[in-house]
């Protein structure tokens, strides 16, 4: 039964992808290209490109895309449901434990230790994103000026300035950066 197979595959993807987007990619590939003949490698590459161009988690994007190709809208719903089911269960248990025990001195100590680490993780993810935005690749080039996308650097600097100076809603800054992107790259191709 194809719907059950979809459900089970995406439960595994949801369950084993810890740490966000790019960590989930090889898992998704294994399930939908290697184990099941649901997508060709070229289609998989396409959906990863589209996932980066659209909002939402990569795993959910892949679930919807694969589901709809294999079994139409019910397939998309089943695959997406499978993908978030492990999260729902595990996160709810942890949330319950957090609110029940966060008053304990020891738990407060643990949380105080975690907070700086969380800031570090967000910083690290932000730097990866900045490198991707400025150089169009995931690794820093040998020389920092090599292949530097000046338009992207300008947008980054302008957006950060606006955010620090006027504290607008970040959503508008993101969309503004998108519009600025079209203008700048059209003028300086």
């Amino acid at each position: 039964m194809i719907l059950l197979q979809l459900f089970w595959s995406f439960i595994q993807i949801g369950l084993f992808s810890v740490g966000g987007g790019y960590a989930a990619m090889p898992l998704i590939q294994q399930q939908v290209v290697d184990i099941h003949p649901w997508l060709t490698m070229a289609q998989f590459a396409d959906i990863m490109t589209i996932a980066e161009m659209t909002p939402g988690p990569i795993a959910i994007n892949a679930a919807t895309f694969v589901g709809i190709r294999i079994a139409g809208l019910p397939g998309a719903l089943i695959a997406t449901g499978g993908c978030v089911l492990p999260s729902c269960v595990i996160v709810l248990i942890l949330a319950w434990a957090y609110y029940r025990y966060k008053g304990l001195t020891l738990v407060q100590g643990i949380l105080a230790g975690l907070r700086p680490a969380v800031v570090a993780m967000i910083a690290s993810a932000g730097i990866s994103l900045l490198i991707l935005a400025l150089y169009g690749q995931r690794a820093l080039p040998a020389r920092l000026t090599e292949n530097l996308d000046l338009a992207a650097a300008g947008i980054f600097a302008a957006a950060l300035f606006v955010l620090r100076r006027w504290k607008p809603n970040p959503m508008w800054v993101m969309f503004g950066a998108g519009v600025l992107g079209v203008l700048l790259y059209s003028v300086f191709p």
Binding site: E52, D149, F156, P170, G181, V182, S186
Partner: peptide, 20 residues
Amino acid sequence: VSLVMKGMLAGVAAVIANVV
């Protein structure tokens, strides 16, 4: 679409830098 995304990526990096 790809130009909008290139611009937005730089904007998103700025949003994260700001919160950091």
